[in-house]
Write a protein that binds this DNA or RNA. Sequence first.
DNA 1: GCAGAGCGGAACGATCCGTTCCACTGTTAG
DNA 2: CTAACAGTGGAACGGATCGTTCCGCTCTGC
Lengths: 214, 214
Amino acid sequence: MSSTSGKTLGGRRAQAARNDEVILEAARAVFLDDPKAPIAAVADRAGVGISALYRRYAGKEDLLRQLCHDGLRRYVAEAETALAEPDDWAAFTGFLGRIVDADVHSLTVHLAGTFTPTEEMGRDAVRAGELASALVDRARASGRLRPDAVVQDLGLLLEACAAVRVPDPERTRQLRRRQLAVLLAGLSAVPDADPLPGPPPAAGEFDWRWRRRE
Amino acid sequence: MSSTSGKTLGGRRAQAARNDEVILEAARAVFLDDPKAPIAAVADRAGVGISALYRRYAGKEDLLRQLCHDGLRRYVAEAETALAEPDDWAAFTGFLGRIVDADVHSLTVHLAGTFTPTEEMGRDAVRAGELASALVDRARASGRLRPDAVVQDLGLLLEACAAVRVPDPERTRQLRRRQLAVLLAGLSAVPDADPLPGPPPAAGEFDWRWRRRE
DNA sequence: GCAGAGCGGAACGATCCGTTCCACTGTTAG
DNA sequence: CTAACAGTGGAACGGATCGTTCCGCTCTGC
């Protein structure tokens, strides 16, 4: 098609550039469905050969790390968006809705432990925690969130939504929304409610997920 | 020790009888932790050799089937116990608490699809569904359960609790109890509550889990 | 004392999977 | 026009894993 440089490349270069995107998309879909899927499954799904993968990533671990880091960045971005929302409760629920819809939890937590994390990921994880804390604090201060809810309950909530899973992705999204609605109703402040039982989840209690497994 | 027949066997026979129990217990623990653990892990955990396993079960599939069926029977038994409880809401919540504590959900659903089920299991599954329906209907009729909750929401709830998982089993139980409390609060009837979104989970929508995977 | 039930665990064969490697193809610089 | 080569498909390789079998040993029950 067109020539040496400019917006739209033609021929081989364009195909390569498009493959960058196609491969990442396929990897997301495949590893979301099964965190320990073989790398060949990603290639198949993307409709490319295995070489196309290894040209871009040093190995499986590299791809997984990138995918997970993308999820983490998305989490941070959505949290920042939410903090800009004036309504405290809407910020909280809107944030969770978007995270659930985008399946960010599966991208991060379920992939963790399959690779050695970078230091930058550690920093982003800390930042994610801070932002989440801010959102929870605001929601609690607004009086809409029950007083005995803590930040770590977000982890339980997201895990609960991510656990919902049927073959059809769109139906999965609907059912997760329903699950989220139940959980949010359960986390809403109501007068004379029984307090939540047991010691609340503590900071760092879920850190083991990030340590290398296997 | 003692002789040919009687309550307490001594020696080899006794060891064999005890192994029956030890092996089942080890299998439960191992496969609850990882549904596709190798069979050798069960032997190790039980402190026996692999032969001791194969003497009792035709193969891995056989063991998994038995384990799953045990879970199903436990589910049915707990549901029957619950139906005998006069207080409608206590029957409902008590049932769920016991199922969550015993991790029956992991024993059944997470093991399903790894073996070809027997007809008897099919019948037990139907019965389990009927009993669960009865419990939900009673809870809803009592006015304590929100009107737009359906039986299949129990599946989502149990999945959500089973998804909570930390290395320490006792702590896992505590956190699951907390999760259960949130979900039950969310499923409780409150005046002027927003209805749950989306088409509710339908009958048979989760049957695919029981079809053979891999 | 002996037949054999019960057992431990090595060995085997079948997959499965990450990674490497090579032949091929269309593009692009000169 | 053509030589180099970036980009690619996919076969092949080596290692790991796991279910199952098998053999030799022990200790019991008669």
